[in-house]
Every structure is written in C-alpha cells, then in structure tokens.
Design a binder for these strands. Structure first.
Length: 365
DNA sequence: ATGCCAACTAAGAGTTGA
C-alpha cells in the first residue's frame, strides 16, 4: 500500500506538471544574492557560465544528519504549549541550532535532515519539528517528513525535507519499500527530484521489518543495508524513466574510497561488500556522480567526526550528494561545513550544495 | 575500530549508532 508523507495533501502522484513550472529566480531572490557571497562557506564558488547581464538562478540545498532533533525542539506536550509551536527561534534559553544554521546560510531553498528521531504517529512532535525551521523573520518552510512506522521501542531514524517554496514541489512522497523513515522524495515541477536519504548503518544484529515486527526477517542489518541500496537504485531508475533528473543527498553510511576515511577505510567483509556494491552497481547504474569528488578531486572532506576525539583524528565522508550525470554542469558549489559551530551537537557536518538554473533544465518528456 | 558506551523508550531489557 502506498504510504503518504505528512505534508502531501493536494499533490498528484506520478505525473509532473510542466505548465505549473515556477522560475526559481522569482521564487528565491535571497538565493540569487547569496550566489555571489561565499563568506560563510569558506570555500570557493565555481564561476558561473552565464553570459553578462544574465544572472543564474541558484537553488541551495543543505543536508545535515542532525543525530537527534532534541536540541531544537521539545517533545514534552507541556513544553510545546509553553513555547508555542509557531515560535521556536529559541527553546527556553537554549538556542535553536537548526534555525541558526538556516539563518547563517541565508535561508536555503531546501533543508534535508536525517536522524530526526520521531515516529510516524507523533503528531505534536511532528508539529514541533515543522515549526523548528521557522522564526519570526524569514521564510516559512514547509516540512515533509518520513518517519519510522514502529509503534514500540526507541525513536530512531527519520528524515525531514524543509522546502522554502512548496509550489516548486509536484509530488512529495515516501517509498513503498521502507517504513523506517529513511527516504523522502520531492519531485519538482521543473523536472528534477530531491531525494533525502538516511541509509542503514550495518551490523550483524537482526533486521526487524517494522511493517511486520513479530515476523523474523532472517536478515542482518548488514544484509538489509545492501538490499536498501538496491531498492533505492530501482526507485531512482523508475524516476529517471519518468523523465526526472535525480539529486540524492544525505547519509549513506558508506565511505566510498580510501581518501574518504581517516585513519583508515573499514575493510571488514560486510563493510567492504556494501562499499563494493555501492561503487560498482548502485552509483554507475543510477547514473549519478559523487559530486564532491567530481568538483574537488582529491581534496580532503569529511562529514562524520568521532565523538570525544580531537577533530580530524577519526573521521569519514559518509554523507554526500549523488547528482544525476546530466546535472553535473548545474552544480555551482559543493562543500562540507566542518566547523564545530556548523555541526552543533551532531557528529555529522552539514553538506552545502548549490545548483544553478534548475528551473531551466531540459525536459526529457 | 567499535559497541566494554551513551541515549533512548517505557517500565525491564532491547535497540541503535561509522
């Protein structure tokens, strides 16, 4: 049975609506201004190829494995009422680090979070999460959540994609093959799709299918991890067959090559096999590119930093953007926001991705 | 290089996370 995301009312599935296409340059004037400023990123901005007098429209995406959303919301009902769900710039005397991230980066068009750790039925919690991106000033984001369907146990996994301009979104949906809250798909009127992913962290513990929690699957989480990646590949192929260009972003829990790890790549069999399949099957068959490597070559870049250790002594690049080959020339910037301030409480650094002219991509259909 | 740990849920132990 199809599972609908939370904020998808009024959206039709399956078909895009080119007639309703919206120019991103009209929708996001802040993003266009931001294209000329790398003040907060500390990275070089790729020079625009636009001709003089023509300013490229820029779509900015930030992806962050927040590890937990607790620091920017409060799930206790009394606390929710006390600060009011519409005003979450601060939670009590604690700063809202999500709001700070979004503000510091001039209100990106999309914000993808992973490991937000809520359950599908947590109505008040979901309202608090949706409110956490919005303050008194700035745009009001719409939140599209995919959350664990489990009714028992700890709150784990969960992704949310915040959209500054929901009118760009033709379809917001989860996927048929996941009930853990690991994938949020936004299909845009402009012919591309933003896929927010929190892939499995492998282990030899059994994998429990939360759609039938009492029935043993006979699979380990390492096995399900590889199965998840194959299912994601099939999902991508189906979307491409419908004419969509894909941008996958999030935490894939796989380091792709030796240079993506310090001090060393995990070479134990389950990790090595998952990596091999991802590199040799998933990425090539999906026709996507690890855009950080494409743009920056061998440059160091890490997205995960071991807790309790000095930064840089134990780290890996497991979060990345996998961009459709046909969109490589649309990429204006890709960077990891590795500073402690950017990571806040999380052991993961946010990813900053800027795409130009996404309102002008060639329609395949 | 994780799981001896820490955090979480939900009422005791089980699950998760580079």
């Amino acid at each position: 049975m199809p599972k609908r995301a939370h904020a998808t009312e009024g959206l039709e599935e399956g078909k895009l609506h080119p007639a309703k296409r919206l120019r991103a340059s009209q929708a996001s004037p802040e993003a266009v201004v931001e294209a000329n400023s790398s003040q907060f990123t500390g990275t070089e901005t790729v020079t625009s190829s636009a001709t003089a007098g023509e300013r490229p429209s820029i779509t900015t995406v930030i992806s962050w494995n927040a590890e937990t959303s607790a620091p920017f919301l409060d799930t206790h009902p009394r606390k929710l009422a006390s600060y009011g769900i519409t005003s979450s710039a601060t939670k009590g005397d604690k700063p809202n680090v999500l709001r700070q991230l979004i503000t510091r980066h001039h209100f990106p068009d999309f914000v993808c979070l992973q490991e937000v750790r809520g359950r599908h039925g947590d109505t008040e919690w979901i309202a608090a999460l949706a409110a956490a991106a919005n303050g008194a000033e700035g745009p009001k984001y719409k939140a599209y959540t995919s959350l664990n369907r489990a009714t028992r146990g700890a709150r784990h996994f969960g992704v949310v994609t915040f959209a500054k301009d929901p009118s760009q979104v033709a379809v917001a949906r989860e996927v048929e093959w996941d009930v853990e809250g690991r994938v949020m798909v936004l299909e845009m009127h402009d012919g591309w799709a933003l896929i927010n992913v929190y892939a499995l962290n492998g282990s030899e513990y059994p994998w429990v299918d939360q759609s039938a929690p009492n029935k043993p699957t006979g699979k380990t989480r390492n096995q399900r991890k590889r199965e998840f990646n194959k299912l994601l590949l099939e999902e991508v192929k189906q979307m491409q067959a419908r004419g969509l260009r894909v941008v996958l972003i999030g935490d894939f829990n796989i380091s792709l090559t030796k240079r993506d790890c310090y001090p060393r790549l995990r070479t134990e069999y389950p990790h090595a096999l998952a990596r091999k399949e991802f590199n040799e099957v998933v990425i090539p068959q999906a026709g996507v590119v690890d855009i950080f490597r494409e743009v920056h070559g061998d440059k160091k870049g890490f997205s995960w930093f071991a807790k309790g250790k000095p930064q840089g002594t134990d780290c890996a690049r497991v979060d990345y953007a996998l961009v459709d080959r046909s969109l490589v020339d649309n990429v204006a910037e890709i960077a990891y926001l590795e500073d402690q301030e950017e990571r806040a409480h999380s052991d993961h650094a946010p990813i900053l991705l800027k795409l130009r002219d996404m309102d002008k991509i060639e329609q395949l259909d």
